[in-house]
Write a protein that binds this DNA or RNA. Sequence first.
DNA 1: CGTCTATTTGAATGTACTCAAAAGCGGTGG
DNA 2: CCACCGCTTTTGAGTACATTCAAATAGACG
Lengths: 199, 199
Amino acid sequence: MQMETSLILQEIAKHIQLTKDEELHFCSLLTEKSLKKKQILLRANAVNTLSAFVTKGCLRSYSIDRNGFEHIVQFAPPGWWIADIYSMISKKPGKLNIDALEDSTMLVMKREEQEELFKKIPKFERFFRIITENSVAANHARLMDYMGLTAQERYEGFCSRYPMLMKTLPQKQIAAYIGVTPEFLSKLKSELLRSGKKR
Amino acid sequence: MQMETSLILQEIAKHIQLTKDEELHFCSLLTEKSLKKKQILLRANAVNTLSAFVTKGCLRSYSIDRNGFEHIVQFAPPGWWIADIYSMISKKPGKLNIDALEDSTMLVMKREEQEELFKKIPKFERFFRIITENSVAANHARLMDYMGLTAQERYEGFCSRYPMLMKTLPQKQIAAYIGVTPEFLSKLKSELLRSGKKR
DNA sequence: CGTCTATTTGAATGTACTCAAAAGCGGTGG
DNA sequence: CCACCGCTTTTGAGTACATTCAAATAGACG
């Protein structure tokens, strides 16, 4: 069966131009992988040797705190990359877990092969530089939301920024992303409903 | 007077090798800039067109929330880059302010010239890709601390991770970085002292 | 169906904030 | 050199946002 590479090539084409040969070479470094809901791609305390580009379903990266609570660092719906960058660049065990929130398919690239790719086709340095810059910008926005907004506002922000994820994700996962307990998110929601209905 | 470029060239040499000519070309794109304490490099709602590499002193980037509170996204002591990446890549007005916490000197590069540099010497894509990856890893760690730790633990973490900044920064700035009010940080400190002395 | 997990609701609690006032500290000018 | 001003830090009392724990309800899946 054929690997589904149109989405990733489309994403790449937004930032760099590739020849047919370069596309083929790039795709030869990818492996297609499928995970069923709840299956794990990366475990905390393991060394992360690969990044995954999601083509179907949704993954998440999260850490587990001392009290056993999950804190979601990133959701990765189709078109997004996910990895434990700290672990990948330091080649040391990381704190992130990565698993599938639903049956998912992804294209996986080993860090070593990515490094080879950079040597062979330096344009990819550019591509990943740009992707990574976007990621920093998103993290800064997230951090500012976290520091300056109430839980209510973070929830509303999430709803308007990610309407797609709203539909598919269980509340529990959204709570773990915006940084509240599921119980409190439930209260926020009923609060919003009540104040919304009054008007 | 001569620009102080040894620190920045040293940082670059950690990741890529440059010829003398390339070094000279790179340095020709830099401008040295000095700011006195409290002077501003970038204002929120302005478009960020440059990044700064700090060689002396310390800068910070921060946003101001609806209640007038400052939230520090990043400190930049010597050897660090600072910019509003969101604004720089989107070329839209950003939310970050950048100013000097003490009399500081930095090497400044316009984004346009950085783009030119990428075309002329593609190795620099690599350098900035690596720098930016490190930044993502640091942001993830920060976010996890924020979500999973108490203010007390974030403070202790800050103390052990940045002992240098501890010595030079006023408490108020540390509070704005770890995400508590200055009053509460003061209480945390006296708490720590008391429990430390008892043992 | 029955089991397991997710969500809702409520009461009690805790962490961190608000407001206010006092004390400390540093720079500046007379 | 000292006095004053502004800003930072400390301390305290009251408050608010969010958590904890517990129990009931609703949904999803085999």
